[in-house]
Amino acid sequence: MTAAIIFAITIVLPNLFLMGLGFFMKRRGEASQAFIDQASSFVFNYCLPALLFFSVVDSEVDYAKQVVLIAAGIIVTFILFIGSELYAKRFISAPADQGVFVQGVFRSNMAIIGLATVANAYGDIGLSIGAVYMGIVTILFNVLAVITLSRVSKSADDTWVSRSLMIVKKLLTNPLILALLAAFAYKALPLPPLTGVIHTTGDLLAAVALPLALICAGASIDLKSMLHPSGLSMQASIGRIIVAPILAITIGLAFGLTGVHMGVLFLMVASPTAAASYVMAKAMGGNDVLAANILAFTTVVGLFGMAIGAALLRGLGLM
């Protein structure tokens, strides 16, 4: 069990340290909001796509064997979505709060926290499997997020047709999804391996992605919101930090997942609420203050939950 605890600490602690560095830099005035916004945009549009593209292109993973893992992730996502929808309709009255609550429960931060933790745990193989998982489930996340946040219409022109077009536009312009599709196409075609200057440049961009993303996440933490969560944000946080990981383990066991596949499923699902949830809630007229509170609390506390779950799974030989 000692080895399992050490394993859990080693995969989570580097993330906490980098986030702590970002928080420290923000407090010292070394990371302005403009820097955070620009760096986050740089990571999202260039560094993470490079990381995902070269992770897939360089890997020898048989992606056909990831079908069971992806199916398990899709089922977990749907159960969390439907369960939180039913809970919101029963116990939450304000439409502006309902969609934000639901998104806070089902949508995890796979692209930053999830991938970084998987990379710490399993190296390049885990990163490749996690990238494929993330690519598929991210599409589902975007569709479900638009559906649940559509309770609040900001204008008379906001119809199901406009929302559907918005979903399609988001998917077709998402640099992470485009990078994964390009990588799959490159591997499927009889093209020579990428080497030399192109690969070196891609490696340098990829190396920046996760550390800079974690620093920006730490710098974005609102300590006041984290320490004084509302009743509703605490309920959503419980769903994200406790219910989601337990459900992931249950579904993973039902699908017979073990080793790296169980590890990827657990770490991706158990990650804190996605940073994109705040942006989308604000854009679609949801309660952005509630979204910020959920994001802040789960970003810090959720990492400890991931460590505890990883230690238990490792101790039982399941991860």
Rank of each mutant, 00 (worst) to 15 (best):
A116T: 07
L52W: 00
S155H: 05
L180T: 14
A71H: 00
S220G: 07
V76A: 02
A209E: 05
F53A: 03
D203Y: 08
T138N: 12
V118P: 01
D158K: 05
L318V: 03
E60P: 00
I294N: 07
P49M: 04
I198M: 15
V61W: 03
A131K: 04
F184C: 10
P95T: 02
P193L: 05
A213C: 08
D37L: 12
L144R: 01
E60M: 10
E30K: 13
L312I: 15
K224R: 12
K154H: 03
P211W: 04
H199T: 11
E60S: 13
T273G: 11
S155M: 01
V57A: 10
A274F: 02
G114T: 04
A64D: 13
A275F: 10
D203F: 06
V301K: 07
G286K: 09
T159P: 06
R151T: 01
V197F: 14
V100R: 09
L257M: 10
V57S: 11
F53C: 02
F7T: 11
G73N: 00
I139G: 06
A121Q: 10
M262K: 02
S59T: 12
A283Q: 15
L180P: 00
I238S: 07
A179N: 08
N120G: 05
T273E: 03
M262V: 01
G83H: 05
T10S: 15
T77N: 14
T148Q: 10
S93P: 00
L312W: 13
F35Y: 11
M226Q: 08
M268R: 05
Q66N: 12
R90V: 10
S41N: 14
R27N: 14
L69A: 04
G256N: 11
M110D: 10
V57L: 07
Q66G: 01
F42E: 02
I294C: 07
